[in-house]
Structure formats: C-alpha cells, structure tokens
Design a protein around this nucleic acid. Structure first.
Lengths: 202, 202
DNA sequence: CCTTGTGAAGTTCTTCACAGCT
DNA sequence: AGCTGTGAAGAACTTCACAAGG
C-alpha cells in the first residue's frame, strides 16, 4: 500500500468529514473544490492515491469514497480500530474536552483523565476514570493509551509530555503554549488558539 | 520585505515561543533542532528569511532573535498591534476558552463572546461582553473584530462561519467537526481534537 | 459535452555542502 | 574548532493539460 503524503492525508481526513455531511449520492472534484477550497487538480490527485478507480467520468460515489478513506486510515468505528486516548490536565479546558461529544462519534475513545490535584479529581466525578498524574506513566502503559490531549499549565507541559513519551504515547494534541520536545516518532499538533492565530498574521 | 512561506512562518511563531521560555543568552541551530525537532538546516534557512545577519559564527542572540520574529509578525504586545477576537459558541468549551489565560499574555484580545441562547449569556456573566448570535454580524463589524474562535454545535458551524465572513473576519480557529466553506481570503485552522488525531493515523 | 486519472511540468520547500567569520 | 548564511541540488508537493471514458 502506497504511503500517502502528509498534506494529502490531512485533506483526505477532512474530505471524509465533508462526505459524512453530504446527502447527494455523487460528488465531483469541482464541488469539493468549492466546499473545501483545495484546487480540483489537488482533489483528484489526493483521491487517486487511494487507488479506487471509482469516479470515472461521472464524479465520485460519496459512500464508496468515504468508506475508502475511512478504511485507508483505519477510521471505521469498530472495536479493532478503536484508539485509546487520555486527557492530561483537567482544568476548565480539560474538563470541557472530557465532557465534550467530540470523541463520541469517532473511533477515538477517552479512557482516562489525569490531573495533579486530588481535589480536582474528586470534584469532577466523571463517567471516565480520573487519576493523579503521579500514576500517569504506569496507567498510560497499562491501559494501552495511544494518544493524549495535553491541557495542563504551561509550567507542567514538558514534564507531562516526557511522562507520556516514556509511556509510549504515539501522538499528543497540545493545547498549551509550550512547544514540546519529543522524539521524532511522536506526533505533535499544536492547537493552542493563540499560537494558531499567530500563524494567521503577515 | 520578503514574503515568508507558510511552513517557515509556522516554525518561526513556535520558535518565538521557545525563545520566550529560554534563560540563556545564546542559542544555536543545533539546540533549536533538539528542542523543536526541525533540522538545523531548516532552522538556519527560516531564520535567514528574517534577514538579521545576527548570528554569525556564535549562535543567535536569544533576545535579538525573538524580538525580530515578534516584529516581523507584528506580535509585540502594544496597542497598535492589538488584534481583536471573539468566541462564537459558549458551551463548556467556549466558556473554558473565554476564561482561559491563553489570550492574556498575547496581542490577541477577546473583546466579545456570542451564543445563541439568551439563558446561557445571562448565566455566564463574564468580564467580557456577551451577546446573542443574532447580532453577530453587526457586532463583529462595529467592533473591528479580526479573528474568531468557533466552538458552536456542528449544526450551526457553517451558518456562523457565513456570518463571520459577511462581517469581514480574517481568520477562524475552528474547534467544530465541520469543515467550513469560506473564501480563500479567510484563514482557517481546524483544531478539533478528533480531526487532529485522525491525521496521526497511518 | 462533462467527468476522472495521470504523465509531465512547474513550483515550493528542504537539505546539502561549504565559504567565510569568530 | 564551531558557528552561520546561502547557492545549488534534491525532494516533495501542486498544477497543467490532455487522453480516455460516459
């Protein structure tokens, strides 16, 4: 199976989302261009990487295309594709993410939350098991957690990232202001709103 | 002034953050490579785009380099660089972002929050003025708001994005699952944790 | 006509490799 | 020695342009 370049991967993931929201049976590269803002040539190239040969001359079948993307990235919602995740740092933001419905309709499941404050843990009383960050490394390892959301104070961000890395984490969605140092094998995406907005500037 | 490519811009914004956390006076491209994970050649190329000529043979002066990046992207904290922002959708996540300290030490200022529920607006009672999304377009325009955080329900995401675009918004940090259709001139960054994690997959 | 899929061309970004400075 | 800055090379990505199918 051909390796798909990172930019194409990002677009295909978003394309799957677009297709999920569609009612019509067919879609063309020009329609996708209008919906997503990518050029029609890029859209066709991205889709061709899936080696589907499904769209010939008539546009793409929405369901077939969507299923192909889900399959290619193991995004189908079934047990063997389930990816176990945790949230580290249960301040207002961590709590909001913990209780959000974001993960519900996906194959990513939040299986634990961590905070350094025992008070906070007892106060929250979530359906999801909450633990002290003291036990972070052993829990992440034991629970086979693959991905983490990091929403701790900046001062603790690198320390917690180190623990996650030591526990074998595969990727971190970083809501903190801190730029994390991790091995190349660990994926990081910085989603702090201020850092993101700065990239909007001239 | 030379235009800086988007990938370099993203790295330089993060580099400024790294430099802010530094105590030592000097830093080399190899140290930055270790801290951030970018190759030393990339680091030097990025910095050379600033046309500083400050680092010759001795590493870069942290303060000079940081100030140069801040200046280049109008990120200094002063009044004329202030960028006015709003949060659209004040559920748990929107509320958490509203009350977060993320924006405090930046030149992005949250000047308004919007929600479709009058109950919710009255319940929250923030220091920041909160309004109904009915008035979104006129408020954004009147208040000269440049950037928005979108944290509404998926069902309302495109509608709210349309209003923001109509009001002349320059960029949207999108926490929803919805892939937004906006003109090319409007910058979008998708930071929904599930969409981000999907890009981590094979 | 309208589509897709894709070689080839074009563009952008990254890395190499080394001159030149300290 | 160790460092930066940068032409030149290389790699990666995007777009063009068109053959072929419906």
């Amino acid at each position: 199976m051909k390796e798909i370049p990172a930019p194409s991967k990002k677009r295909l993931v978003l394309l799957a989302q677009i297709l999920s929201q569609r009612t019509k049976e067919k879609i063309t590269s020009v329609e996708i261009q209008r919906l997503a803002g990518w050029s029609e040539a890029t859209v066709r190239r991205d889709i061709s990487l899936l080696e589907l040969h499904n769209g010939v001359s008539n546009g793409y079948d929405v369901k077939v295309l969507r299923d192909a993307i889900l399959a290619r990235f193991n995004m189908e919602e079934n047990v063997q594709n389930e990816h176990r995740c945790c949230i580290v740092g249960l301040g207002k933001l961590g709590e909001a993410l913990l209780e959000s419905s974001f993960f519900e309709k996906s194959n990513f499941k939040i299986v634990a939350g961590f905070d350094s404050s025992q008070n906070r843990i007892e106060l929250l009383r979530s359906r999801i098991p909450l633990h002290s960050t003291n036990n972070l490394e052993s829990f992440v390892r034991m629970e086979n957690i693959e991905y983490a959301v990091l929403s701790v104070d900046d001062a603790k961000a690198q320390l917690m990232a180190d623990k996650l890395v030591a526990a074998g984490i595969k990727g971190i969605v970083n809501y903190t202001n801190t730029v994390l140092s991790v091995p190349d094998s660990v994926k990081i995406e910085n989603v702090n709103p201020v850092l993101v907005m700065r990239t909007f500037l001239a």
